[in-house]
Nucleic acid binder design. Structure first.
Lengths: 258, 258
DNA sequence: GAGTGGTCTAGACCACTCC
DNA sequence: GAGTGGTCTAGACCACTCA
C-alpha cells in the first residue's frame, strides 16, 4: 500500500537533507507495479489488472495509476491496448522478429528476406575477466557461451558471441536453442523467466580476420561493424553480453535521433 | 481556435470512411503549437506562453494543453523547467556540445577532451542526384557543400561531408562557419531560422582510401565507421544530408535500445 | 451491454524560481 | 508573494473490444 498522509515525502530525515527529497505518488505506484513485474506476479504477454482495480489496490485515484502505467508503457515494459487491457510486454509475440536488432536491408524493403539461424556452439565455461566485469559477476563464475550466425536471404550477415550468467540459465543447451522457434529473447522469457528490457550498444568498425572471414564468407581485411551489446533486466541488472560482427555490404545499422 | 462541438471528429465524411476517423483535442492543440513553432512565433531558447495562457487562447482546459505540451517535450521540441516556464528547444545553448553526435571516448569519461573543428571546404554547387533525392529537391538545384574534420584531444576523429539546400542557407560561407562558436546546428537556428528536430542515421563499416586516410591520419585499408545522417526540420522536411567517417580506434558510437 | 483504456474538465494543492 | 510547471483527485463521457 501507499502512504497517503505525507504524500510524496520520501524516507530520509527532515530538514537539511540534500538528496531527492520528494517522490510523487505516481512514482511510488510505478515502483510497486515494477516490483510485481519483477516478481513474476504477471507474466510476459499476460494482462495486468485494470486501472480501476489497481487504483483500488493502491488506494489512489485512477489518474495516478494511469500516469504510472503511461510511463511504464513509454519504457516498453507494458503495452496498452484500448478496449482490451494493459499487457506485460514480451519479446516472444512481437511483430518484428528481433526487437533489438537494428539491421535493415539496403533494398527498400521488398519482401521480408528469408532468415536462418545457425548455431555454432553452446558451452559452459568460467567467465573471462572482461565478461565477468560486464555481467557484474565474479571472474571465474560459470557462464553460458553461445556462438551463432544469422543468415538473411541465404547470406551470412551476423556473427554473434553471447555470454549469459550460468546460474540464471541452468538448463540452456544447444538443443534447447536450436529447437526454439522465434527470437532468443522469447526463449529466455518463457524458459528462464528472464526478460530483457533495455540494452546499451557500442559500435565500431573493425577488420575481418581469418576465422571470422570464413564464417561470414568475406575476405580477411574486409570491414565489419562490431556491435557490443549489454542487455539489462529489471533493476538495471546486466544479464547478457553480446559481441556481434555485422556484414554491412548489403545491410546497414539503422538509428533514429531526436 | 479549436472546434469544441464535435470534438475530435476530423474532417472527412461520415460513416464508411476508413482512415483515422478521430483526432483527440490535445492532438489538435499540439498541431497548433507546432504551427506556431514552425512559423517562428516563438524562437529557439525563448519561453512559450504559460499553460494557463495557452488554455485561454485555445479555449480548452489546462490539462489538455498540458498533455499536448507533454508530448512535444517528449519529442524534444520543447523543454519544461518547473517554476520558470516552457521553452523552445535549441541546439545552441545545450549542455552537450553535439546533441546528435553519438560518439563517446573509450576512456570512462576522464576530462572532456579538447575539441577542434577544422573547416576544409565550403562551396556551392549543383546537387548530385543522390543528394538531391535525399533532400527532396530537383537534381541540379544549388546546394551548399561543407567538408570538415573534428579533432578530439588533438587527434582527427570525424570527417564530415555535409549538403544543405542552397535556397535555405543563402548567406552561408566558410568565414561564417569558422567564426561561429558552438555547434553548427546552433548557427543554422540563429542565422538561417532552420531548426533540426529529428534525424535518421545509417551506419556501415568501410575501409579508408588514400584521400580519407590522409585526412584522418590512418592507413589505407583501415576500418572506419560510415554514418549517413539525414536531418529533418518541422513537417518532416529533410534539410541536411551528412556523410561522416569516424575513426573508432579510441572512440565508439553509443546507442541505447529499449 | 459490460468492461477496458482514452479524453476532457475543474479545482485544489505542492514544488520551484525569481523578485 | 506571485507566477510557473507538477501532482492528485473525482467525475463525465468517448472509442474500442468482445461476448
Amino acid at each position: 500500500m501507499v502512504s497517503t498522509v505525507g504524500v510524496g515525502v520520501a524516507a530520509g530525515a527532515g530538514v537539511g537533507v540534500v538528496g531527492p527529497s520528494f517522490s510523487p505518488l505516481y512514482q511510488q505506484i510505478k515502483s510497486l507495479i515494477l516490483r510485481s513485474l519483477q516478481s513474476g506476479e504477471w507474466r510476459p504477454g499476460e494482462a495486468i489488472p485494470s486501472e480501476i482495480e489497481l487504483a483500488a489496490r493502491f488506494k489512489v485515484s485512477q489518474g495516478t495509476v494511469r500516469k504510472a502505467v503511461d510511463e511504464l508503457a513509454a519504457e516498453n515494459l507494458l503495452m496498452r491496448r484500448q478496449g482490451k487491457g494493459t499487457f506485460v510486454a514480451t519479446h516472444a509475440e512481437e511483430q518484428v522478429q528481433y526487437r533489438f536488432l537494428r539491421l535493415a536491408s539496403d533494398r527498400p524493403d521488398a519482401l521480408p528476406a528469408s532468415e536462418r539461424r545457425e548455431l555454432l556452439d553452446c558451452r559452459r565455461l568460467r567467465a573471462p575477466v572482461d565478461v565477468a566485469r560486464a555481467l557484474q559477476i565474479k571472474a571465474g563464475e560459470m557462464v553460458v557461451e553461445v556462438r551463432r550466425v544469422l543468415h538473411f536471404s541465404g547470406q551470412p550477415v551476423v556473427l554473434d558471441d553471447i555470454w549469459l550468467p550460468g546460474h540464471m540459465f541452468k538448463g540452456l543447451t544447444a538443443d534447447r536453442l536450436s529447437d526454439y522457434r522465434g527470437p532468443m529473447y522469447g526463449l529466455f522469457e518463457s524458459e528462464f523467466g528472464v526478460r530483457m528490457i533495455r540494452a546499451e550498444e557500442k559500435l565500431r568498425a573493425v577488420l575481418a580476420d581469418e576465422a571470422v572471414g570464413a564464417l561470414l564468407q568475406v575476405d580477411v581485411g574486409a570491414p565489419l561493424l562490431s556491435v557490443e551489446r549489454l542487455s539489462f533486466t529489471y533493476g538495471d541488472q546486466p544479464v547478457e553480453l553480446r559481441r556481434g560482427l555485422y556484414r554491412t555490404d548489403h545491410h546497414h545499422y539503422r538509428n533514429e535521433l531526436s
